[in-house]
Structures are given as C-alpha cells and as structure tokens.
Design a protein around this nucleic acid. Structure first.
Length: 846
RNA sequence: GCGAAAGUGGCGGAAUUGGCAGACGCGCUGGACUUAGGAUCCAGUGGCCUCAGCGCCGUGCGGGUUCGAGUCCCGCCUUUCGCACCA
C-alpha cells in the first residue's frame, strides 16, 4: 500500500544529506535564479502559505530536470513589529521569538519537501546582514539620497511609530488598522523621488511582470505632464504659481484656489474683512485629515484678493479650498469649472462663473464639466489656440507660456520620498550620531555594525526601548570627539528586503555588501514569486534601491526581477467575529463550527464568511494533520491542482482526497510494474498509450512554462488513466512501462517523494531529480485516426473515421440554407482544405 | 465615481487559431468486494422530452458577424480587484 508517512521522511533526509539543492555560484552553467519572497517569520505556516512555496519548488525541480544550474535560496525577513509585540505581551525577547519561529517554519518547509539552498540562508536581524543595511544607508547619505527632513508624517498611535505613505491604507495603519494621525516631525527619508522618472520608465521594460502590478506602480508614481504657470497678484506685488495638466483650458480659468497650507495664505488674508472667521476656518481644515476633508465635501473661502489670468487678462478671485492638496504640485490650482469635475462642483457651490473652452470635435455643445483630453475635443473661445485639437492646444499653449517666461512645461509625480525612520526597537539601527557641535554625523564605516543591544527592557510603554538605553545612546562624536547621542530610530524593514536578493549570492562575505562579479552573473532574478500585497511597497523599494546600487557601480542592471509571478490566496469558509477587539478564545473549531456559529463562552454570533485563512476567521488548515494522513505529495498536488495559481482558490477538505487517490493509483501501478517481467508482449492499447505519453510530455512542458500547473496535473491524471487502462496485461510491455516512467518523471516536480520511491523500486539508480526531463516525439503525438463529422445543410449527417490522417480533407461544396457560400466555391470541386492534425474536422458537403 | 479583470454543471475548474462545450477532480447515484466502509474497484452523472432520437435546449442578459461563437463585435447586468479630491 501507499504509505507516504514512511516514504517522505526518508527522501527528505536523503535530499538534505546529499545537499541536492546547494548551488556553487562560481561553477559554470546556464544560470537560473529562482526566488520566493523571503517570509516574515511569524510562526506556524498553514496550507495557504504552502501554495507559494510549493509552486516555487515545483518550478525549481522542473528547471533542474531541464539541466539548468538553478539557484533557489531562502531567508528570513526577520525584523519587525510582531516580534516586539510578542516580547511586550509574553516577555520573550524578540530575537528568541524570531529564532523559534524560523526553526518551526524551516521544519515545515522540510515536511513539504521543498528544496532550498540552506547554505545561503540569511536573516535580516543578524548583525552580519544588517550591517550592510547600515552601510547602504551611509552610501545613500553620502550621495544626498538619505536625508533628514521635517515634514508632516503619518503617525500610528497604536504602534507608536511613523509610517511610510505606502503603509497607510485609506487613512489607516496597514498593520493594526488604527486611524493614522498627521504629525510634523523630523525624520530620515530616502530620496526615491529622484528616481521617479526612471522607476516609471523602467516599467515598460518589464515584459514578464503582471500588467496589474505595473499599473499599480504607475498609478503610485503618478507621473503627469502639464505646466507650471505664474499668475500675477497685483495687490501683493507678486505671482502665485499653479500647476495644471490641462494648460489648454487656461482661457476657462475663472478663479484660483489655494490649499489652506499654502505659504501665501497669510499675506492674502492679512487684510480680510473678517479675518478671525477665515483664520478659524483655515485652522479647522488644517487639522483635518484628507479623509475628513473629503467627507466634508467641497468647502472654500474667498480671500478678497484677485489674480490676473495671463491669457484672458481678467481678474479672477483667489479662493482657499479644502480640496487642494499642498503635497502635490504647487499647492495652488487654476479653477476651470467648465472642464474639471472638482472645479465644477466648487464653482456651483459658490456661484463662480463657468466658461466652456473645449467642445467636441463634431461641434455639438459641451456639457460642463466636459473633460475629454484626446483629439476628439477642440479648443474654442481660446485666443491663440482657438480651433486646435486638445493635444496640439496643450503643446502650443506651453510654448507660449515658455516664450512669455511665465512658466514652463513640467512633469510632476505623485510619489513622495520614502520615510524610513521607525520609533521601534526591533530593526536596523540607523547609523547616525548627533553632536551639538557638528550636528548629524555618520558612523564611520569601520565602526559598523552599530549593533542592536539585546538586553533592553520591553515595557510596551513610552516608545522605543532603545532610547532609554544609555549605554547605546551615549557615545562620542566621530568628528570632534565630543559627547554625542546615537540616533535611536531604526529603519523600516522594507529597507532590509530591498536588496536581500543580491546578498544571497555571497551571504557570508564580511568585507563587502556582495560580490559584484558574481551578482552580475546571477542577477537579475529570473523568476520571482510572491503575493500581490507587495505590488507597491516591496517591489517599488527594491527597484529603487537596485537603481541606487546601479549608480554606485555595484550592479550592472537596473531592474532586479525579470519575471514576476503573484500567486493567489487560498480561501476557506469560516466565521468572523463581528465584535472587534474581543480576545480570541481557542476552541475546537471543527465541532464548534458545524454545530453553532457562536463563540464559546460569549454567545457572540459569528458571521459566516469565506476568506483568507486566519485565526480570527477560524478557517486555518494546518498542514500537519493533512501530511500525517495523506502525505506532503498529496498536499502539493492538490494545492497546484485546485485552480490556476494566480487565482484565488477555495480550499476544500473533500477535494484533497482526489489528489491522494491519484497518487495511490500511480503507486499501485508501480507495484504492478515491479512485479512483472518485461516480455515484449504487446497490448492492444499500446499505441494509444505511446501517443498519450508524447502528447502529455509536450503538454505538461508547455503548461509548466505558462504556470498552468492545474491543467498540467490534469494531463498527468489522464496519462495515468490511459496507462491504467492498459494494465495489468500491459505491465510487461516495454513501451507501456516507458510511458509509466515518463509519467513518474513528469510528476516528480509536483509529487517528488512518491516518484523518487517508485523510481528506486523500479531499479533505477539516482534520483528522478538528477534524471532528465523527457522529450516528446512530435511524430508520435498525432492521433491515429481522425473522426470527421459530415454535415449537410448544417445538420450532422454522420461521422467518418479516417485512418492514417490525410494531409487534407476535401469539401465538395459548402452551403448555407439553399445558398452557396461564395468564399468556399472557388475552383471546381476542391473548395477548402480544413484538415488540422489531431483535430476533429467538419466537412460540409451537399 | 474612474480603471482593470472575470461571469461555463451541485462545486473547483477545462476548452492552441472561431471547429465534438463541460477535460481533470470533488460531490452525487447505482453496483462489486466486504462483519463493516468515511477504504478500494466498476459504471453513470448539464437540462428537457412525446425518454434511446440522425431529438430539442444549453457557457450572465439582449442583439450582431459567420457554414459554425464560451471564444469575435455592439449594448446592458452582476461580481471581484485596484485607484479614489494628485488639478
């Protein structure tokens, strides 16, 4: 019988002992760098996590069988908040907690039969790794790409730290969902905006990235072309600069709106008739978050001042508005209510004039707000650009603006600099020292790493424990030797993950960040696999840091990941506790879930819900029971079979059995082959088996390359069924046995343990992994006979079996109803060749 | 609101190019073997009928192109995801 429980540990041990996945990066060969995004070691893995790693392993084994020198390393994104929270809550040191989790996860990878090159393992919380984070910081600092700046920043009151813009979702903390506050603080930033244009342009070169991810990055970078234009404000004797993407609508600008934070606001309102009221309003809006402002609707106040529209020379009122953002553009806009929805809404509310300056090309009247931007719109009532289609109008007006020296064509980005300071303990210390005399001084390279002290108290109150550790904080200034204080903020953990893929090549190098020669040989990563949740954060930061490494001359490429694949999540039916903040009560989920949707001890009704596996939803499937009962191969095959890998997939406990039965059948067939002598006896079904084998080799190969693992496995099931049909009589037939062995090889990436075991029982030396991937013979792939359906007047009139498929089939005449079909009636009798090898053909005759 | 993707049996999902719709698997029905079956094996399984016929209907809804449409075109509906005052 098929006993995965005995087979699997044996092979896992063998693979580990033989170090089959260890790659010599200096050895020659056609390189292939596979990488799964290194995980945060949060603890136990469930079958949902498994998808990602099983996928990568199947692919890795496939490439190895293709003879590629493939590298498949793994490491740990080991700094981060959960470790610190665990320390506060349970009194375990973050390091201890993290190391324990790493051990459990590593063991789980082993039980899944996943092959990683553990000789290259790294963890970002090790000083030997994070010292290079610090080194990188210093390099960026030297180049002006790391700087300290005061800016309104996102503050999470729950986690007591600042957050990057990328970590704020709808005004809430990405991690704990607390409402994020705006605070004016001095922090460390990386100047990612200096790379906005290159990061945007580079997306076009990423042919093998999902469009979705590229679109998300494009939107995040937010490149827009437009113009800066200066409007005179005679009463102040100065100009105010606005930014617009629609300079072609400038003749329709009937007012101007400034953000309440705009630096000229004070001067503009200084002599306002009701100064107190307007200042009160400004204060109120300033204290609102963007979300609150949006909820309030369009609100504004007239400043009492006017600007001059440089093209109409009209006086236009200057307003303040809650919908204008100081962070984008110049913090001032020209109001064109005829052609912008927001301006239109504002104008309607305050009775400002609306002027139409663009209309549809066909001359039909434009209904404001008419926002067409392509050449189906034409400028009207617009002086020098009258009659021009929008794109030309934009071009012409920008030239005129530049000629008159009142502005220029500009490119603006939505992207803002990356705030990397975190007021937390468990992260890379920022290697900077503050001295009253010399101000901020970088830690000299030879003093790296600045080590994180391990013996600090975790109270969970009053912020970062580092700041209270005098031995850490007090130091001397590297420049003047006077007393100084260390920076106690640590780096965002996304810094750690922005370059780890390069460190894997030479992970133990203690003299430099990595070996450029070898990194240039192995990188970029050929196949990167991970969740879509990193579409912006990690992948954008990594692309940015890669460019900085490129500019330092350390790497020869600008894009770190050639191919990207985002696997979908695995969902399961479960329940959600609608009462937030209630402690989770452990319970016997299975019994409880079926019986009553109430949380034990509380009687809080739970809401049925299908979703991602999580403890709070009571729908986590731990792999252990599953593997004990059916084996890791079953989980692997089921996980890949369940759905296309990029799609969300619903886990079904019943469905698992199908994968198990399949493997058990393959096993059972193996027993028949091992107990039968080869006799050269030919079964009637042999021809069919041989053809099926070649078709399957071809199909599975193509499907793996296209990440269609689900249909690759279904094709293997078909081959298995076809071979099964030829048994037991066929067991002695060498050609049937050949097909069976091909099945084992094709199946190996998905179910490595069972295929290894049978391979050995069949008397082969060595592992399937080191054997070759089979090759299909196209000549033997074709069907022996082709079924031709004959239709008359569109009705099926029978079928014709054609042995030894002809080069072409012949249509005598094609008809539709009583009508001849023209395109089919050229020539005399032979009208159209419609035979396609391997396919059913409809021959239409009269 | 804007943008993108997707709608196929009881379920997960198949279907190079427009060419046998529903592969493969789950579930279900019947049978075999069994003291037993939540094991295994065999058969069946889209719906309908005047129920075995060379039958009718059928891929979200309504049209269109075509000898032929799940697939292409037009218009709706629904769902999911992303963005959301970015001027």
């Amino acid at each position: 019988p098929y006993t995965p429980k005995e087979i699997e540990p044996k092979w896992q041990q063998r693979w580990a002992d033989e170090r089959v996945a260890e790659t010599d990066v200096a050895a020659p060969g056609q390189k292939l760098y596979m990488l799964n995004m290194f995980p945060y070691p949060s603890g136990d893995l469930h079958v949902g996590h498994g998808r990602n790693y099983i996928l990568g392993d199947a692919l890795y084994r496939y490439f190895r069988m293709q003879g590629r020198a493939a590298l498949n390393p793994m490491g740990w994104d080991a700094f981060g908040l959960p470790a610190e929270n665990a320390a506060i809550k349970r009194g375990i040191h973050p390091r201890e907690w993290t190391v324990g989790n790493i051990g459990r996860m590593k063991k789980q990878f082993g039980r899944w039969g996943i092959l990683y090159d553990w000789s290259k393992e790294l963890a970002s919380c090790d000083p030997e790794y994070y010292r290079w984070n610090q080194w990188l910081f210093l390099q960026l600092f030297e180049r002006g790409l790391a700087y300290r700046g005061k800016a309104p920043v996102n503050w999470c009151p729950q986690d007591e730290t600042v957050l990057a813009n990328e970590q704020v979702i709808d005004g809430h903390c990405e991690r704990c969902d607390a409402l994020v506050e705006q605070r004016e603080l001095e922090q460390w930033f990386f100047k990612i905006t200096a790379f906005a244009d290159r990061l945007d342009a580079g997306l076009d070169t990423l042919e093998h990235w999902p469009e979705k991810v590229k679109t998300m990055q494009r939107n995040w970078i937010g490149r827009s072309l437009g113009a800066d234009v200066d409007f005179q404000v005679p009463s102040l004797g100065k100009t105010i600069r606005i930014f617009t993407t629609r300079p072609d609508t400038i003749y329709g600008a009937t007012f101007m709106v400034l953000a309440p934070e705009h630096p000229d606001v004070a001067a503009l309102t200084a002599q306002h008739s009701d100064r107190t009221a307007i200042e009160q309003w400004i204060d109120q809006v300033r204290n609102q978050t963007n979300v609150e402002r949006q909820e309030a609707g369009k609100e504004g106040r007239f400043t009492g001042r006017y600007a001059i529209n440089p093209f109409t020379n009209e006086e236009i009122p200057i307003w303040l508005g809650n919908f204008v953002l100081m962070q984008y553009g110049t913090g001032a806009i020209m109001g064109v209510p005829g052609h912008d929805e927001r301006d239109y809404e504002f104008a309607k509310q305050y009775g400002l004039p609306i002027r139409v300056v663009i209309q549809p090309r066909d001359g039909s009247p434009a209904e404001p707000p008419f926002t067409i931007k392509d050449d189906s719109g034409v400028a009207i009532n617009s002086g020098i650009i009258d009659g021009l289609p929008v794109p030309q109008a934009i071009e012409t007006i920008i030239k005129e603006i530049e000629r008159r020296n009142i502005g220029k064509g500009t490119v603006r980005y939505r992207l803002r600099d990356w705030l990397i300071s975190r007021q937390r303990y468990w992260g890379t210390p920022i290697p900077m020292i503050f001295c009253e005399q010399c101000k901020w001084v970088p830690v000299p390279e030879d003093q790296l790493p600045v080590e994180l002290p391990l013996d600090v108290p975790f109270t969970g109150r009053q912020g970062n424990p580092l700041a209270k550790d005098d031995r850490f904080v007090n130091t001397t200034c590297p420049r003047c030797g006077g007393p100084a204080r260390r920076e106690t903020d640590t780096m965002d953990t996304f810094v750690d993950s922005s370059w780890y893929y390069a460190r894997f090549i030479t992970p133990r190098d203690d003299a430099k960040i990595f070996d450029s020669r070898l990194v240039n040989r192995w990188l970029p990563v050929d196949q990167y696999i991970g969740g879509i949740e990193h579409a912006i954060l990690h992948l954008l930061y990594a692309r940015f840091i890669c460019r900085t490494l490129h500019d330092m001359g350390l790497v020869a490429f600008e894009e770190p990941f050639t191919r990207l694949f985002n696997q979908g999540v695995i969902t399961k039916e479960g329940y959600r506790d609608p009462s937030e903040g209630m402690a989770w009560v452990p319970l016997n989920e299975v019994e409880w879930r079926d019986e009553m949707p109430f949380k034990r001890n509380t009687m809080t009704p739970l809401v049925p819900e299908v979703g991602k596996m999580s403890k709070s939803r009571f729908n986590v499937v731990p792999p252990d029971d599953l593997i004990d009962r059916y084996g890791a191969d079953t989980e692997r095959v089921y996980t890949l079979f369940i759905a296309p890998p990029e799609k969300e997939a619903a886990w079904s406990d019943e469905g698992v059995i199908g994968a198990y039965r399949f493997l058990a059948r393959v096993w059972h067939m193996g027993e028949q082959f091992t107990s039968t002598e080869l006799t050269a006896h030919s079964s009637q079904l042999t021809g069919r088996v041989v053809r099926k084998m070649h078709q399957t080799i071809d199909g599975v190969t193509r499907r793996i390359e296209k990440f269609e693992f689900n249909t690759a496995i279904s094709a293997l099931m078909e081959l298995s069924n076809t071979i099964g049909d030829a048994l037991p009589e066929g067991a002695g037939d060498p050609r049937v046995r050949e097909a069976y062995e091909a099945l084992l090889q094709l199946l190996h990436p998905f179910a490595p343990h069972v295929t290894e075991e049978i391979w050995e029982l069949l008397g082969h030396e060595g592992f399937v992994l080191t054997s070759r991937w089979p090759v299909a013979d196209p000549a033997l792939m074709q069907e022996e006979t082709v079924t031709i359906a004959v239709q008359v007047n569109g009705k099926l009139r029978g079928q014709v079996e054609v042995p030894n498929p002809p080069e072409e089939a012949v249509v005598l005449e094609a008809v539709r109803g009583n009508e001849r079909v023209r395109s089919w009636t050229e020539g005399k009798q032979v009208v159209k060749t419609i035979y396609v090898p391997g396919k059913l053909v409809n021959v239409v005759v009269k």
